[in-house]
């Protein structure tokens, strides 16, 4: 029996069920109900063709293993997480990392998904090519759904070239000024006093922008992020209140050490979201207890 078929049978057609990944984001979206059958998604990289810039990978594969394989060919995917985070977990949580400005959004990286639906059927969503408008884009709904619409077994992801050079700088200039000076910096963080900027690309391009930033007082800080980015994410709307956190200027996310409050959504949005969940999983058997609208930004 192949991996996907076994996964489909493990999920089955009835009973409450959830997939265990690396448990690195296990708390996101609320606790699972009790008495739930836990299953594991298959692992392994099925196909990677650097000239297509796509990779087919099973959902239980760890991000670090995928990254290692892609790095051998000078490519990467825009999924970020921790050591044990799985591909499926990163997609289901759907959070973009601080390099979004360069490598894109998680929601744009999922091209095709094979998932088991609430009825226990194996469904294909999306397509294998980098461009595709064939029907409704279910992949968009799956990313960030916390496994409440279907449990993914295998995906095709868009890959991107790894930058030739990557460097962090730190300085006092306001982030808005840095944004004007640089052509699409990969990351732009601010802790209320210092600005941290990550420049990536061809060495000659990076060197040029490094020298420009140095001329306004910035200093090179190596190729690892020089500031610890706290774990909890908040919407960053009030610039006078950083609360000891670090702001991601590109995405308006504030990272702090205090747990995020759940954003309030308009009733109409929650109502439409509930309709989507009910139509996909009328008996509420997939990841019961989890709520994407309680996941925070």
């Amino acid at each position: 029996m192949n991996d996907l078929k076994k996964f489909k049978e493990d999920v089955g057609k009835e009973g409450f069920v959830a997939v265990v990944g690396g448990k690195t984001h296990w708390e996101v979206g609320g606790a699972l109900n009790e008495d739930i059958r836990l299953v594991f998604a298959p692992t392994g990289i099925d196909a990677f063709d650097p000239s297509e810039m796509t990779v087919s990978v099973k959902a239980g594969t760890k991000l670090k293993d995928l990254d290692q394989e892609l790095a051998r060919h000078g490519q990467e995917v825009c999924l970020e997480g921790f050591l044990e985070t799985t591909v499926g977990g990163a997609l289901m949580v759907g959070r973009d990392g601080i390099r979004r400005n360069r490598i894109g959004s998680v929601r744009e990286t999922l091209l095709q998904a094979e998932y088991v639906n609430a009825q226990g059927e194996l469904i294909k969503a999306g397509g294998p090519t980098v461009k595709n408008v064939t029907g409704y884009d279910l992949c968009r709904l799956l990313v960030g759904s916390l496994g409440t619409l279907g449990l993914i077994g295998r995906v095709i992801l868009r890959t991107r070239p790894r930058p030739e050079k990557s460097v962090w700088l730190q300085g006092e200039l306001r982030p808005e000024e840095v944004r004007r000076m640089c052509f699409q910096p990969s990351s732009l963080l601010w802790d209320g006093e210092a600005t941290f900027v990550q420049l990536e690309g061809y060495g000659i391009d990076v060197d040029l922008e490094v020298s420009q930033l140095k001329s306004v007082g910035f200093e090179e800080r190596g190729n690892e992020c020089p500031i610890k980015v706290p774990r909890f994410r908040h919407k960053f709307s009030n610039r006078s209140c950083l609360d000891g956190g670090v702001a991601d200027i590109h995405s308006s996310i504030l990272y702090t050490n205090t747990e995020a409050s759940i954003p309030q959504y308009p009733e109409e949005v929650l109502c439409l979201g509930a309709k989507v969940r009910d139509t996909f999983d009328p008996t509420g058997r997939l990841n019961p207890g989890r709520d994407p609208y309680k996941a925070g930004p």
Binding site: R107, L141, S251, E268, G273
Partner: peptide, 29 residues
Amino acid sequence: VLPDGTLVQLGDIDGHMSGYDLRGVFVGG
């Protein structure tokens, strides 16, 4: 404007809402 006449905003200008990506599935609909 949804087919029942309800007015709703899908997504936000930061592009960072949680919940289902209803904006994403609406585009291309």
